[in-house]
Design a protein around this nucleic acid. Structure first.
Lengths: 136, 136
DNA sequence: TAGGTATGAATGAACG
DNA sequence: CGTTCATTCATACCTA
């Protein structure tokens, strides 16, 4: 993709860059202040563990909270549950599991749900790569 | 300036930030490459020279994807439609929406249908998590 | 510092 | 429609 541009077009591009840069910065500022307000007003519960995957760019960096990760105790319990039954637990089960795991560290129901989903995907992936050896 | 925002609005803001950040970065990239090209003059582009810079760069991004994902422009339009009426549109409506969105990137009617289905599920899920027990 | 891996989370698509 | 699956993304962590 090769292009030829006039000085005028370049100039337009410059203005677009400036405009979007300002917009980005302002949006980031607004977003940050809203997050602060959210924490002030109701900063408890599972939202605390939520971590945004928002991308960072040169000029606009936002400090994000770390994402949830199971403590060793939580991990053992989850692994044991998974070995017993690899299916994703029901909503009620997830509630119970979450309550149990909360004794070993901060956790939310969505964390449990995601963990089982990802754990299942991981075991499937492992199985796939294992069967590749047999027939290549 | 104190404002009260819903989770939903925060979410939209997040996507706007992402969109504008991408736009800014890609505009910068394009600008740099245009500067270079000015010096070694021209090759002939097989593509339209001066379409919307956003569209062009997004189109390239999309070309790499395996599954459909809305471009920032498409996302904004869809979000606006959803806010106006969160019900899944009729087949005829979906046709119209698809045609409109096609101007901002490749898309199929099924994509629109699925998007509305998933969007509704997402908002419901969000509402549920608000009523969860909170033990900080 | 630059790649590679593991994994929590987000989401398009599909199933029942 | 609600739920599940498959894929992708972003970050943390590791290694050279």
């Amino acid at each position: 993709m090769m292009m030829v541009m006039t000085e005028e077009q370049i100039e337009i591009l410059r203005h677009q860059i400036v405009a979007y840069t300002i917009i980005s910065e302002q949006l980031c500022e607004m977003y940050k202040s809203f997050i602060v307000q959210q924490e002030d007003s109701f900063g408890t519960g599972e939202e605390d563990l939520y971590c945004d995957p928002l991308m960072e760019s040169e000029a606009h960096k936002i400090a994000w909270r770390q994402r949830w990760a199971p403590t060793p105790a939580q991990f053992q319990i989850l692994e044991n549950l998974f070995i017993q039954d690899s299916r994703t637990p029901s909503k009620q089960k997830i509630k119970e599991i979450t309550i149990a795991l909360a004794q070993h560290g901060p956790i939310a129901e969505s964390n449990v749900h995601n963990w089982f989903q990802n754990r299942k995907a991981k075991s499937k992936k492992k199985k796939r790569s294992a069967s590749q050896f047999t027939t290549k």
